[in-house]
Lab assay of single mutants.
Amino acid sequence: MSGIALSRLAQERKAWRKDHPFGFVAVPTKNPDGTMNLMNWECAIPGKKGTPWEGGLFKLRMLFKDDYPSSPPKCKFEPPLFHPNVYPSGTVCLSILEEDKDWRPAITIKQILLGIQELLNEPNIQDPAQAEAYTIYCQNRVEYEKRVRAQAKKFAPS
């Protein structure tokens, strides 16, 4: 494992614990031996107030490669969400998460999670990743928002 990646992720964890947006979660997972795995984080993004996503808490896994922060983490909703920019596998399609697009090593975990929260309610229809959600979003916004509200209710924190 890269010392650069681990040191950056340790800084990220410290900064997150000191200050993070209300309702968001970002925690490194534990290895079988109980030690912390900084390369694999369990996160959760709350649906934004005043949107059909409100009330939901959407679980996301963030996986970092050894060359982080040169390369972005892979962000994957578990379980996958109904959304035009979420692949059926759950992987998020967002330009700041793509090395050859808008990724920059200075982007923080907090910025990534806030960017994904923004994307939930403002899909990028130029870059669809899920045919069904994309089609319904474009053709029947009322039905799309109904499905999103049902999903938010399903993923409401207990």
Rank of each mutant, 00 (worst) to 15 (best):
A5C: 15
A5H: 15
A5G: 14
S7I: 07
L9F: 00
L9V: 00
L9M: 04
E12Q: 05
E12G: 02
R13F: 02
K14V: 09
K14D: 03
K14G: 03
K14T: 05
K14Q: 04
A15F: 12
A15Y: 15
A15Q: 14
W16P: 01
K18W: 02
K18N: 03
D19I: 04
H20A: 00
H20Q: 00
G23P: 04
F24R: 02
V25T: 07
A26S: 10
A26I: 07
A26R: 03
V27F: 03
P28S: 06
P28Y: 00
T29S: 14
T29F: 15
K30W: 03
K30D: 06
N31R: 11
N31Y: 12
N31A: 08
N31E: 11
N31W: 10
P32A: 13
P32K: 15
P32F: 06
P32M: 14
D33W: 07
G34K: 07
G34R: 09
T35P: 04
N37S: 14
M39K: 06
M39L: 10
W41Y: 02
W41P: 03
E42T: 12
A44S: 08
I45G: 04
P46L: 08
K48Q: 09
K49I: 10
G50V: 08
T51W: 02
P52I: 11
P52K: 11
P52E: 14
P52D: 11
W53L: 00
E54M: 12
E54P: 00
G55P: 10
G55Q: 10
G55F: 15
G56C: 00
G56K: 06
G56H: 07
L57D: 05
L57Q: 11
L57A: 05
F58V: 09
F58H: 02
F58K: 05
K59D: 08
K59M: 07
K59N: 11
K59V: 12
L60D: 02
L60A: 12
R61Q: 11
M62F: 14
L63R: 12
L63V: 14
F64V: 11
F64Q: 06
D66N: 10
D66E: 12
D67C: 12
Y68S: 04
Y68W: 07
P69N: 00
S70P: 04
S71M: 06
S71R: 08
S71Y: 10
S71T: 12
S71C: 10
P72H: 05
P73K: 02
C75K: 03
K76H: 15
K76W: 12
K76T: 15
F77H: 01
F77M: 04
F77R: 03
F77N: 03
E78Y: 07
E78M: 14
E78Q: 11
E78C: 07
P79C: 13
P80G: 13
P80R: 11
F82M: 05
F82T: 05
H83C: 03
H83V: 03
P84N: 13
P84R: 02
N85W: 03
N85V: 06
Y87W: 06
Y87S: 01
P88F: 09
S89H: 15
S89V: 06
S89I: 14
G90M: 10
V92D: 07
V92F: 04
V92P: 08
C93E: 06
L94G: 00
L94N: 04
S95C: 06
S95L: 04
S95I: 00
S95K: 04
S95H: 00
I96N: 02
I96A: 02
L97H: 11
L97I: 15
E98M: 13
E98F: 08
E98G: 15
E98R: 07
E99W: 08
D100L: 12
D100M: 15
K101A: 15
K101G: 09
D102S: 14
W103Y: 15
W103I: 03
R104W: 05
P105A: 14
P105H: 01
A106W: 01
A106S: 14
I107Y: 06
T108L: 14
T108Y: 15
I109P: 04
I109R: 03
I109D: 03
K110L: 07
K110A: 04
K110D: 07
Q111S: 15
Q111K: 15
I112G: 06
I112Q: 13
I112A: 09
L113W: 04
L113S: 11
L113G: 04
L114S: 12
L114F: 12
G115I: 00
G115D: 00
I116Q: 06
I116C: 15
Q117S: 11
Q117E: 09
Q117Y: 09
E118M: 10
E118D: 13
E122L: 10
E122W: 09
E122Q: 12
P123V: 08
I125W: 12
I125T: 09
I125K: 04
I125R: 06
I125Y: 02
Q126G: 11
D127S: 15
P128W: 04
P128F: 01
P128I: 05
A129S: 05
A129K: 02
Q130C: 08
Q130I: 02
A131M: 06
E132W: 05
A133W: 03
A133H: 05
A133G: 07
A133F: 06
A133N: 01
Y134N: 07
Y134P: 05
Y134W: 07
T135F: 11
T135W: 13
T135Q: 12
T135D: 07
T135I: 11
T135A: 13
I136S: 12
I136C: 09
I136G: 02
I136N: 07
I136W: 13
I136F: 13
Y137N: 02
Y137T: 09
C138I: 13
C138V: 08
Q139F: 07
Q139R: 13
N140I: 04
N140C: 03
R141Q: 14
V142A: 13
V142T: 13
V142W: 10
V142H: 12
E143G: 12
E143Y: 10
E143N: 12
E143T: 07
Y144C: 02
Y144D: 02
Y144A: 00
Y144Q: 02
Y144N: 03
Y144W: 06
K146H: 14
R147Y: 08
R147T: 14
V148H: 01
R149L: 09
R149C: 05
A150E: 10
A152P: 01
A152M: 05
A152Q: 05
A152F: 07
A152R: 01
A152D: 05
K153L: 10
K153C: 09
K153H: 08
F155G: 06
F155S: 11
A156H: 13
A156Q: 12
A156C: 10
P157S: 12
P157T: 11
S158P: 12
S158C: 08
S158R: 11
